[in-house]
Design a binder for these strands. Structure first.
Length: 601
RNA sequence: CGGGGCGUAGCGCAGCCUGGUAGCGCAUCUGCUUUGGGAGCAGAGGGCCGGGGGUUCGAAUCCCUCCGCCCCGACCA
């Protein structure tokens, strides 16, 4: 029996000043966590208890489709060199040396290690498929930890890895995870959406994220209120309204126009009396390409390449899409001297006409990427690569060419849903990512040389999927979606306790005994209960109960003498009088009803 | 990494500009009263004022430096 008077539940009346988002404030105030450093937290009793419940759900569902492993958190350098990620992970990887000077890192993910096991142990197609998972601490040196447990440098992750003989097998493993994840998040009481996600620059054919809408989230989700379309902004597309073509002037060929001081899209649009959609915007980058693995030095040196992107003036470059289109690892914008070198012009007056460009992305010269939305347009305006001059009557394809044409822009709210026959208008919302499933392909099995014999005795490379769930983010998202001024309430499946029995006046021996007996009865009924037996005023105990996320409270107070107690649903802030001998049954019914509702969604 | 802010008791803050050896509220401990929504009264404990260096007779306060934490940005020239 858990007695509050003996527990360490350090609740705070006020939140520390540096907590911004609701979940951060309440996790601190409710005594779930305490901060140790930037993005590093101590989990106290209530926090750990809730996380353990989440982990139990995850384990229960994962055991239905896979096998639990536990890999080390501290990892040697070699596997990372083999996969090319020793350099590829950059500064996000915590690195250290042992006493001999050998290099090690703290695990931020385990594709290399799992693939290493597969390579060493799997020999035959008969051993496939395999799904291996673990629930383990991950370390990532985030550039900017923030928002309490939402973006941290140490966290708990369920990560799993599937190995299959072929694409059909991978599809099965992927679907198994999809269903397991839906079960996990449903049982955890989250209102989530599944969205199409970017599958990354390197390999990967399909990817979905499990998202919970909240303003505290860092991801932007595009969705259609009419059909079921939903995608991460990094991946989302839309149907564009056709732009009315501009009439050519003069002979219809590019014409140099003096545009003094018109360095922004708005200036140019005003000068030519056109919409920004008819101006060509240029955003120029230096793109980092990883050298890849090298048997001698560990990895070949990284290289920087000039990339110029052109798109409609009213559109935004989507760097994730751009990275994928050109196969680069990182981007930074060009400096003035680089603009001069690659585009021979100053910022504000850059354009595509007359540029020499590479035939393939990331060559020795300049890579020119044009957004799809410019194809087929005519008589546009663009910079002339000359201070205070622009060109008009510019027609893509006729007046300039490119290395690659691709979708490199972010959709805007209000654009038309990309689904055929759907006329919905897209909306954009903030969300937090709680899970991600990903068809990896042979990215790791190939580079690390994992092979099995197929039924014809031929060597083949197994293909992989990888799948992650952020354990703490389930807790965080649950708090974000259910809180008010007084605190938060968790689904009874993941709450540290399902019920708190509050004895309003512990000095009253009869009340105390009633509370004790009730708590025992609840426990016997399989309900996770804590007895608030503190010698505090009733108000203090009520406030704490409202704060700490326990979904049900039973007040044992004045009416107990006449055989009644109060049953309070925290979510509904609703109190009902129930006969003492019926309350166990009633609580149980409510908890069961809650689970049924979750499953029904 | 760039910009901004902050660091004084467990938490929230004042004091700093204009140097004189630290204060308020909450919390904690003791006693009495109180006991259904963060009680009242009385008393008590708790601080190398983030670290180091400097200026000064004297530094929480001024200067230098380091560290830590928070927020914004790190795509539209």
């Amino acid at each position: 029996m858990h007695r509050w008077s003996k527990l360490f539940i350090p609740t705070l009346r006020e939140a520390p000043a540096d907590a911004e988002v609701a979940s951060h404030k309440f996790l601190l105030r409710a005594g779930y966590i305490r901060q140790l450093g930037a993005g590093i937290y101590n989990y106290l009793f209530l926090g750990q208890r809730s996380l353990n419940k989440i982990i139990a759900i995850v384990r229960d569902e994962m055991d239905k489709i896979g096998q639990e492993f536990l890999l080390p958190g501290i990892l040697p350098k070699d596997p990372w060199v083999e996969s090319g990620r020793w350099t590829g992970m950059g500064d996000n990887m915590f690195r250290l040396q042992d006493r001999k000077g050998a290099e090690l890192c703290l695990g931020m993910t385990h594709e290399e290690i799992m693939t290493g096991i597969a390579r060493n142990e799997l020999r035959s197609y008969k051993q496939l498929p395999q799904i291996w998972y673990q629930i383990q601490t991950k370390y990532r040196d985030e550039p900017r930890p923030k928002s309490g447990l939402l973006r941290v440098r140490q966290f708990t992750m369920k990560d799993s890895y599937s190995f299959d003989l072929n694409a059909a097998g991978l599809d099965t493993s992927y679907k198994l995870h999809d269903q397991a994840y839906r079960n996990i998040f449903t049982r955890s009481g989250l209102k989530f959406v599944v969205v199409d996600a970017d599958s990354g620059a390197m390999g990967g054919s399909q990817s979905q994220e499990f998202m919970v809408y909240t303003d505290a989230g860092e991801d932007l989700i595009v969705s259609c209120p009419v059909c079921r379309y939903a995608a991460n902004l990094e991946k989302a597309t839309s149907k564009l309204e056709p732009v009315t073509e501009m009439e050519p002037t003069g002979d219809g060929m590019p014409e140099l126009v003096h545009t003094p001081g018109c360095a922004s899209i708005a200036d140019v649009a005003a000068f030519f009396k056109i919409s920004p959609a008819s101006d060509i915007k240029c955003v120029a980058y230096m793109a980092l390409k990883h050298g890849g693995p090298d048997s001698k030095s560990g990895s070949k040196p990284d290289t920087w390449h000039g990339v110029a992107t052109f798109l409609r003036g009213d559109h935004q470059v989507n760097e994730t899409k751009l990275l994928g289109a050109i196969g680069a690892a990182e981007l930074r914008t060009m400096q003035a001297d680089e603009l001069e070198k690659y585009l021979h012009g100053p910022a504000g007056y850059l354009g595509p006409v007359g540029l020499q460009h590479d035939a393939k992305p990331l060559g020795d010269g300049l890579t020119v990427i044009v957004d799809k939305s410019l194809e087929g347009r005519k008589n546009l305006v663009c910079g002339a690569n000359k201070l205070d001059y622009h060109l008009r009557n510019v027609t893509p394809g006729r007046d300039f060419t490119w290395t690659l044409s691709a979708d490199i822009r972010s959709v805007n709210e209000g654009e038309a849903c990309p689904v055929d026959d759907c006329d919905g208008k897209l909306v954009v919302g903030k969300a937090v990512e709680v899970g991600h499933i990903f068809k990896l392909g042979d990215r790791y099995t190939a580079s690390m040389g994992a092979r099995v014999l197929d039924e014809n005795g031929k060597e083949v490379t197994p293909i992989m999927g990888c799948y992650g769930i952020g354990i703490e983010r389930i807790l965080t998202a649950a708090i974000e979606q259910s809180n008010d001024a007084n605190g938060f309430w968790l689904p009874s499946t993941i709450a540290p306790f399902q019920v708190v029995v509050t004895v309003t006046n512990i000095g009253d021996a009869a009340l105390k005994e009633t509370g004790e007996k009730l708590a025992v009865a609840l426990e016997d009924a399989g309900i996770d209960v804590v007895l608030d037996d503190r010698d505090e005023r009733a108000g203090v105990k009520f406030k704490d109960a409202d704060l700490v996320g326990i979904p049900y409270r039973i007040n044992v107070g004045k009416k107990a003498a006449s055989g009644l107690v109060e049953l309070v649903s925290r979510a509904k802030a609703q109190s009902t009088d129930v006969a003492l001998d019926a309350v166990v049954h009633e609580v149980k019914a409510r908890i069961q009803e809650e689970q049924l509702l979750l499953k029904a969604d």
